[in-house]
Design a protein around this nucleic acid. Structure first.
Length: 750
RNA sequence: GCCGGUGUGGCGGAAUGGUAGACGCGGCGGACUCAAAAUCCGCUGGCAGCGAUGUCGUGUAGGUUCGAGUCCUAUCACCGGUACCA
């Protein structure tokens, strides 16, 4: 918690982290500002006992406090329980229950009166003190001031135990109504002071009767339907009437400071990290307990402390649910490193997050004899960290916290452990099963199942390949042994090759989404790579292809057969160069398509991390190349440029095939990885004409081709001249035409 | 409960306020083949229509906008986290 503020502020220095993760961490750290206020407390006989402090973010509701709630472990609860057995039983019962936040928050609100009475710090009124199951000892002070009119949880509690609900916050309309009544009263009584309360305004919006109605309606809603939790204006609060939130906060902070009864305070939801776990696996906490010397760290030369390995045997003796090293009477026995007397080892182990919090730093310093060495500062922070979104809070917060610890120990010199974070999804797959007679299920691997479809290609059933009998279709879920829906990547790699499997993994979904495994999809990727291979080798087999040069230079590269034959015929000649000015429209189109693809792939890989759309763009380009049968010199030159660029663009995803094809394209002497990343040529992307969508009242009615430099007026005139447009404008008057250059013409008519 | 996310054809998904369904899978039809596989070509959101085309359509209900899958409000379902699963 000492690092809470820094962990919060550090999030603003991480533009490369997903906003969802940063938002979750901010909420988890949960910084809130408010007041800590001390309430004096009397016992049932009216004698003063220890006072209680509460933390509140809503001091403006102070005059609406009708009781106090404390956690079951709170000292006041324990004090009251001493003389009240039924309360002691209740507290014991609450401690039995679950401790997780989800359990505490969803269970029914329950409580019990302690019999103690807190004194309101402003009014002096006596307020009951309840033990409540929803108050947590480790947040704030373990005690809260309950304002049922303006806090929904307190409201539910008050309803259940018939405690008063006192309205002290209203919206502007209600306050005005209240003032109207006071104004009327003041006139009747002739009291100038009341007139002053109106801030000099003349209020005649309300009659007294309607004002009463407004106030009663507001109050009734609170009493019957639930708390009003918005910030508003204070009423029923004596000298603070009419104040807004900030005024009330400032006034009360001042007042309590003067009386030594409270102060402004920043509170964090974040709790300290309890690093011990009562279980066997995990690193033993290297501490020895000595009756004489207390807790003594295990000396460095005795590290690491090794877990016993005969636990299976031990376990059968122990039974039950205890950690084997806790139950083992022998393992713990040792001697005290300080006094040499008999002592016992700590039997708790570390939370496994202890190791996952700094492994990345240790990885920079293999073989180091200290935790990390100077290599850490060369490599860190991590440029690109990748992990599942399920780690958004715990691991990724411990990770950041630990880095700051390492920094404060002088082991690293950066503030944050990773510059960029990508949260990837899980791999999921379909599930299939058969019901057994005893109600259990036999899960069947998707690879053994064949799907049945109706005429519309919808899946209507599934059957086991081996016996042809039907199986049930289950949900698509995270791959697991228990659901038998796992696919061994090695089997897939053996069948289709590593490139194909990688390509599918990148294509099936954006990385942050879950990826649905589907063998037919993998086959599709295999088809794409085969088509690409054929496209390149067919191009290379052309007698005019530059790869011939490679053989001529004596490089014994493994060219595809056709290319090799062409090469050995000695028919090679130098590559044609592209003359952009002499390209025909189809050649220009292909070249523009190529350079637009280069731009898109670069952006998708580098900025958007949208590998799936980058691959889709390359598939489109291959489809275009496939239709491009131009065998002229310039046609081949354009194709050659496109194929080389595609090989380079695909290299990060399919390194093996692209490495081979790079050689096929005539680069026997160079390595693909040494080549610069392709750059889009702006001049190749220039368009002569653009296609605009034409809408009438927001609905698409036609498309038009306009010159790239056409004016808005020209586009508008052409749009209005379309027969389809005229048809839909019949009987209507054109009111407005919106032209968005390069995109759309929208005709608004009515 | 609270915090974060997701919801689009038969399926995975695309669309960075401007032509919804790119690309892939599946399906249908055709070519090649003695045949099958592989490969290639064409079609493929629903409804109506021979067709041109029209119309509906992005969980649900509203709203903002000339224009909304995209922004806002409410709501439903599902997924992740909720501090001892890691």
């Amino acid at each position: 918690t000492d690092y809470a503020q820094e962990l919060l502020d550090g999030l603003d220095t991480l533009p490369g982290w997903p906003d969802a993760v940063k938002t979750m961490q901010r909420n988890w750290i949960g910084r809130s500002e408010g007041l800590e206020i001390r309430f004096d407390v009397n016992d049932a006989d009216g004698n003063a006992v220890e006072p209680v402090s509460v933390f509140t973010t809503r001091p403006d509701t102070l005059m609406g406090v009708t009781f106090l709630s404390v956690a079951a472990e709170h000292p006041l609860a324990l004090l009251a329980a001493q003389s009240k057995p039924v309360l002691a039983d209740f507290i014991a019962e609450l401690r039995q229950g679950g401790v997780s936040e989800a359990e505490l928050e969803t269970q029914e609100k329950r409580g019990m009166d302690t019999g103690l009475r807190a004194l309101h710090p402003v009014s002096g009124e006596e307020l009951p003190v309840y033990v409540a199951n929803f108050v947590l000892m480790n947040y704030g002070t373990g005690a809260v001031m309950a304002v049922p009119a303006h806090d929904q949880r307190d409201w539910e509690f008050a309803k259940r135990y018939s405690l008063p609900i006192r309205m002290v916050i209203v919206d502007r309309g209600v306050l005005d109504a209240l003032r109207e009544i006071q104004h009327d009263l003041a006139l009747g009584a002739g009291a100038d002071a009341m007139r002053a309360a109106l801030d000099g305004r003349t209020v005649d919006t309300f009659s007294t009767a309607s004002a009463v109605q407004i106030i009663e309606g507001f109050e009734q809603r609170i009493q019957e339907q639930g708390a009003y939790t918005e910030r508003g204006l204070l009423v029923n609060s004596g000298e603070y009437d009419g104040f807004d939130f900030q005024q009330a906060l400032d006034a009360l902070a001042e007042r309590f400071k003067a009386h030594g009864r409270g102060q402004r305070r920043v509170n964090f939801r974040l709790r300290d990290w309890g690093v011990s776990r009562q279980r066997y696996w995990g690193c033993p906490i290297p501490v020895i307990r000595c009756e004489k010397c207390g807790d003594v760290p295990v000396p460095e030369e005795q590290l690491p402390v090794i877990l016993p390995e005969d636990v299976a045997e031990q376990y059968s003796k122990i039974g039950g649910v205890q950690s084997p090293i806790k139950a083992d009477p022998v393992w713990r026995q040792t001697t005290c490193p300080t006094c040499g007397g008999a002592a016992e080892r700590e039997t708790d182990t570390f939370d496994t997050f202890m190791e996952s919090s700094w492994y990345y730093a240790r990885y920079t310093s293999p073989g180091a004899t200290t935790q990390v060495d100077e290599r850490a500062n060369y490599w860190l922070p991590v440029d690109q960290y990748i992990g599942g979104i399920e780690h958004a809070i715990l691991h990724l917060l411990y990770f950041r916290f630990y880095h700051k610890l390492l920094r404060d120990e002088g082991l690293v010199n950066s503030d944050e452990p990773a510059t960029n974070l990508l949260c990837q999804g899980m791999v999921i797959a379909e599930t299939f099963y058969r019901d057994n007679a005893d109600g259990s299920k036999d899960w069947i691997n998707p690879a053994d199942v064949e799907l049945e479809r109706d005429a519309r290609a919808r899946v209507i059933g599934a059957k086991l390949k081996s016996d042809g009998q039907p199986v049930q279709i289950g949900p698509t879920e995270k791959m697991s042994k228990s659901k038998n829906n796992g696919i061994d990547p090695q089997t897939m790699i053996g069948k289709y090759g590593a490139d194909t499997v990688r390509l599918f993994s990148m294509f099936a979904a954006p990385p942050e989404q879950s990826l649905e495994w589907n063998e037919a999809g993998v086959e599709g990727m295999s088809r794409f790579l085969k088509r690409f291979w054929r496209e390149v080798t067919a191009h290379a087999a052309n007698p005019d292809h530059p790869s011939i040069q490679a053989v001529a230079e004596g490089h014994a590269v493994s060219l595809p057969l056709q290319a090799r034959e062409a090469a050995e015929d000695g028919r090679g000649r130098a590559a044609e160069t592209i003359d952009p000015a002499s390209l025909d429209p189809d050649q220009k189109d292909l070249r523009r398509h190529l350079h637009e693809t280069i731009q898109k792939v670069g952006d998708d890989f580098g900025r958007r991390h949208a590998f799936n759309t980058a691959i889709a763009a390359l598939m489109e380009l291959l489809n275009a190349l496939n239709k491009f049968n131009d065998q002229s010199d310039q046609g081949r030159a354009v194709r050659h440029e496109a194929l080389e660029a595609m090989v380079l663009l695909l290299n990060p995803v399919v390194p093996h095939i692209s490495h081979a094809l790079w050689q096929v394209l005539g680069h026997a002497a160079t390595v693909l990885e040494d080549q610069p990343w392709p750059q889009a040529d702006a001049s190749a992307m220039v368009r002569d004409t653009l296609t605009l969508a034409v809408q009438v009242n927001g609905k698409l009615r036609a498309t038009i081709e306009v010159a790239a430099n056409a004016s808005k007026e020209e586009a508008e005139a052409l749009a209005l001249a379309q027969p389809q447009v005229a048809h839909f404008l019949e009987g209507l008057r054109v009111r407005k035409v919106i032209v968005v250059p390069g995109k759309i013409v929208n005709i608004v008519a009515g």
